[in-house]
Design a protein around this nucleic acid. Structure first.
Lengths: 301, 301
DNA sequence: GCTGTTCTGTAACATATGGCACATATCAAC
DNA sequence: GTTGATATGTGCCATATGTTACAGAACAGC
């Protein structure tokens, strides 16, 4: 008759899906909420607002939009979920053996079973990608890049620069004026100084968040550019300055993996290709011709 | 590289065990805490005391006995546990169903469905990896690299060089004398001339098989080095000269993907890490220290 | 009985909290 | 530009919060 019919859907999922109907500042709150769920929401409004880089009223407005009458009411919901997720039942489920038995650990091949494990783990990271990247954020990123920006500049951190470079190479085949800045604060600073109101900056900042990333993001924002930040699930400190944040899962034992990161970059490029239409196809054709020239010059038969 | 060593024991367990050293009123608090864990502890002291039928100071005394300096400190711990128990990882383990349609391709989101498609395709490429790479070949490759070769040299083609470089960076953290040759037939030819009977050459050669790759492989073989060739399923022309061939699936529409390639490289490195044992761990520690020095020099606070 | 100890709740206080009105900033359309 | 409309932050207030000091209750040993 009364109360709680069935099991409520996690609030996290609703926030995740409704990301795109939020205002920019509200989105920042939503992001920190998802990044540190549910802890961030169980702190005070001031703490949450501070972590998100906004103000208390913004937090309250977000909750209002989500249909909560007050902050305590919102916290009640979170507490209920937390309790449910720590119930003996869910606990038992969590300790289950192997969720996805992709590769039966073939007996008698020690080196290979480690390899199989590693591959399986990475396959899972990639499979989880659609759950870590809010759909609305991707759409906005694609729209931005396919909307004929005057200029795009891309850079990464110590390791991630390689993926950054790959994305740059792919986008360069699709749209004009794509720069890759290997040393955004050094030799390549000019590529950022070139940025203006119609520019898009894509910054990778993973794990041990490098101070440099924050500086780069600030620099781009200061010049009026839109910033797309690609980071891990714990959110880079630059997150509150960026316009669009694309979080991706990296975690692994003993090593982190760039698998999902690469897939994100590639798929983003593919979506931009579809979004840019005719222009992209034409540009690709040009590109193809240039490669032939390059090869003719360098790869002498 | 991953952090968080050892998972803390749930606070609930400690409370449960130490029940008998509590005073009667404290025990009442402990009971309601366990009955509604962790929600009860995430409310206010007054609420918790009320639910337990005691007073606020009793709550505080209990926490004091458990070693918490303040109520907020206690709540921090609780929030941390809740967050951990709802982490994407435990979450993925919890609901088993949904093979992989996690995000229904929301109507009216054109850019995103293309993206979702691209991600799905790449996830499949990665999943197929164990079927494209013969297990025996992997084992031999791992054995070769973990068997203390005198020297390892790695190179790739026009695009694949980025993955080659990644593999080089990873292996460099695990074993000594790893070279990355960006232009194996040009400026970096010396790195191949260095090769000898105890060397291992890893060569990437994908798709439009570049003539250069064949030359590089021949050069390495001529000097007595073992050659590991990483190529696509159609097999590079260099395949018959190489000692070990690791084929990987790339094909996609409209673009090829390096997802499986990257996963292969990363997983290979991980297997080598396990295979190399003590030595690899020690080297990683050295590496870590160097990185700190690098960062201290370059990332001025 | 009384005495010393341990346990527990009441009262009071400084502070942090959620909430709100209002001013400013931002942005799109003209 | 100028104008509307929307989005966002600041300052303020009533209140609830965590914390402490203190007084009474419960209970042991004698």
């Amino acid at each position: 008759m009364t109360g709680t019919l069935a099991v409520e859907r996690p609030l996290r999922d609703e926030i995740f899906e409704r990301m795109d109907e939020l205002t920019p500042a509200e989105r920042k709150v939503a992001r920190t909420l998802l990044a540190r769920y549910p802890a961030a929401g169980l702190e005070s409004t001031a703490a949450l607002a501070g972590a998100a880089g906004t103000s208390k009223p913004t937090v309250l407005r977000l909750l209002d939009r989500l249909g909560f009458g007050s902050y305590p009411e919102f916290q009640d919901r979170l507490r209920a979920e937390a309790t449910r997720s720590m119930s003996p039942l869910s606990r038992a489920r969590a300790h289950r053996p192997a969720p996805r038995g992709a590769n039966p650990p073939r007996a008698g091949s020690p080196g290979n079973s480690v390899f199989a494990h590693a591959v399986g783990h990475r396959a899972r990271l990639v499979a989880r990608l659609p759950d870590t990247v809010p759909p609305g954020e991707i759409e906005r990123a694609v729209a931005l890049l396919a909307g004929r920006p005057k200029h795009v500049v891309i850079s990464g951190g110590y390791f991630s620069r390689l993926v950054a470079r790959m994305l740059a190479m792919q986008l360069d085949q699709l749209i004009p004026n794509v720069d890759y800045a290997d040393e955004p604060l050094g030799a390549d600073v000019g590529k950022y100084l070139r940025a203006g109101r119609d520019s898009v900056a894509i910054v990778f900042d993973l794990r041990r968040h490098e101070l440099a990333a924050k500086e780069v993001v600030s620099m781009a924002k200061a010049r009026g550019a839109s910033v797309i930040l690609i980071t891990d699930e714990t959110l880079s400190p630059s997150a509150d300055e960026a316009d669009i944040v694309l979080p991706v899962a990296l975690d692994g034992v003993p090593f982190d993996s760039f698998a999902a990161l690469l897939v994100l970059a590639e798929s983003l490029a593919e979506a931009v290709f579809h979004g840019a239409g005719e222009a992209a196809i034409e540009r690709m054709a040009d590109w193809e011709r240039s490669v032939h020239i390059y090869r003719a010059l360098h790869v002498r038969g």
